[in-house]
Design a protein around this nucleic acid. Sequence first.
DNA 1: ACTGACGGGACAACCCGTTTCT
DNA 2: AGAAACGGGTTGTCCCGTCAGT
Lengths: 202, 202, 202, 202
Amino acid sequence: MSSPRNPDQTRRALLQAAYNEIRKHGFQAANLDAILGEAGLAKGALYHHFPNKKALGYAVVDEVIMSEIVEKWITPLENAERPLDSLRDGIQRASECLSDEYIRYGCTLNTLAQEMASVDEEFRVRVNRIYSLWRDGIGQALKRGQVLGHVRTDINVESSAAFIVAALEGILGMAKAANSLSILKITAEGLLQYLETLRAPS
Amino acid sequence: MSSPRNPDQTRRALLQAAYNEIRKHGFQAANLDAILGEAGLAKGALYHHFPNKKALGYAVVDEVIMSEIVEKWITPLENAERPLDSLRDGIQRASECLSDEYIRYGCTLNTLAQEMASVDEEFRVRVNRIYSLWRDGIGQALKRGQVLGHVRTDINVESSAAFIVAALEGILGMAKAANSLSILKITAEGLLQYLETLRAPS
Amino acid sequence: MSSPRNPDQTRRALLQAAYNEIRKHGFQAANLDAILGEAGLAKGALYHHFPNKKALGYAVVDEVIMSEIVEKWITPLENAERPLDSLRDGIQRASECLSDEYIRYGCTLNTLAQEMASVDEEFRVRVNRIYSLWRDGIGQALKRGQVLGHVRTDINVESSAAFIVAALEGILGMAKAANSLSILKITAEGLLQYLETLRAPS
Amino acid sequence: MSSPRNPDQTRRALLQAAYNEIRKHGFQAANLDAILGEAGLAKGALYHHFPNKKALGYAVVDEVIMSEIVEKWITPLENAERPLDSLRDGIQRASECLSDEYIRYGCTLNTLAQEMASVDEEFRVRVNRIYSLWRDGIGQALKRGQVLGHVRTDINVESSAAFIVAALEGILGMAKAANSLSILKITAEGLLQYLETLRAPS
DNA sequence: ACTGACGGGACAACCCGTTTCT
DNA sequence: AGAAACGGGTTGTCCCGTCAGT
């Protein structure tokens, strides 16, 4: 927070501060001065690294949000032997130990998607790229599960994967609207039940 | 269209124009001048009916969006003998004959929820009120279905209802992010399958 | 406050409400809607009695403030046998039993004079007319005092009268700036001493 | 005049222009665009130096008006051997060589006091601070005069000082209301006579 | 590489006055 | 005589981006 001399550190400080502000207020309402204040930097620093506000927003999507989703939801699935169990664990972890702050602000990717998809095509494309990766990650895990015999083979993998991502975002969005962890749990219960229907009969 | 001296007509014109702008740009980015231009009214009219922009937004949620959700999703269920079929029909109708515009802008309730829930507590409460009604509507329909023997009795009705709403919003949000009707169809397929798992074995 | 049917009552209600708002906020910052709210009337009533806001303000000066000054400061002097004693009593009464509200808002004539004299010539003329009457009232009282032998004859009556009015307004203004009754008393003490220097040696 | 990149110069230009506008129209009616036009600056400059209009007004009181009063009325008294003569000279100078503009707009401190004291507590406090300094300056000068034997010792110094300030402001206010230099002279005559009554008998 | 003063446009809020109708 | 919907202009605030300097 004090004095990031390294130019790359500066860039990362900007991205992180921008992410925090966007998370709280959305992209359009995010204030550059507030971002700079949080990063401890001045206008000049920002416009050295990014041509304008939109470019900063794009970088937040491409780098910060992308890696957040990858780390939290995609990577864990890649090495999982039993994808359904891994998904179940992820959802359960989310619905149990989610911080108040996360409930309040929801999934930043979803927030940005709903705000910006119809406002700025480039935003939409970048957000969709992450959703696409996410769907693919789950889809491939499900396929591996089919090969290993844990997942039913009479399902449409792409459809199920897309539905899981959509349901997850819908659940987080509903919890955000209700600002309630208990609503999150109740709603997530449905998704857990759905996952069980994908399990191959042993 | 020129001079609707009827104050109630004016109010409705303002609400409708505000709804259209909010739908396209979100609440914070919605421009009052654009709203007034679309409504064919001047500043004075707006200030006469609403003390400020937020009050206009609240009224849009309470009246326009509320009745939209009630008419499209809640009322059809109230008279339905077979709730699962009614839900299925609604989703299929949505995933088939949805206009490009609807795909592009998504569900306004969801858009507003993601943008405003963490920004303004009053917005969140009003949005959540609609979600709550929606969950209740589906929940009661499922209960009636249980009584009539169409719905399995070993499910948690509240949980299923909440999940259905969340999944629906998630699906519409995903389609908006992808700006693609085919993604909508693929994703909705998962929800239709989930609904079938609720059906009582005959 | 309830329903003044008589048109003259309506006019007076408007003037009184306008006086109250002007007293609190000044003329330019006085809000017509607030005035109407306080009077329990609508726009139409105001524009039936006055062509515009300025005309209302002029009427407040000519009628409400004029009669206030006349009643409080001029009439008492007209019948007084000993003008210096009457002035002294008036000042002492003011510096003792002045309400907090009067200290806070000061003399409305002075407030209006300082705000509007350089902004609107018609306002200045009307305010000055009252000051002129006030000076004349004191001047004539001093002259009668000279004839009766209570007031020194080697003073310039017009100058003394003008100074007394100016000092009074200055004192009330200073008390308003300090929002303090004790400052009012201390400052008024000087004026009382000045008045004694006008007394004819017995 | 074109581009004073020196931030301190810009600040002073803003304050001076604001002072001129406030002097003419009062604080509430002062137009920021007019101030910026007079200062040859754009909105951004103002917002950079002051968070809002009120802060600009406060700075005008604290810096411009404060130093104006100090230089014109307080400093001259500090070095004066005979305070009564110094006060007399100041008043005579004022009542003789006052410009038409000064007569028209009066003492800005008084104008602001009457307009803002009851509207904004912070304004009142700042204005009162100057009045307090002014009273103290005259009070201390009178005390020194007492020690040096030029001023009567049987007077209440604080009371006399407060009265002198109040009377001065009252006189300038009356002249403003009358928009007349001759009224100023006639009224000031009374104050000069009062000052003579403070002189120690030789 | 970074600072910070400043330009300049856009928008919400505010409010006076008009007009129609009762 | 008065109520009330509405027109329309003004203004303070906000904020993105630029540029000269270091």
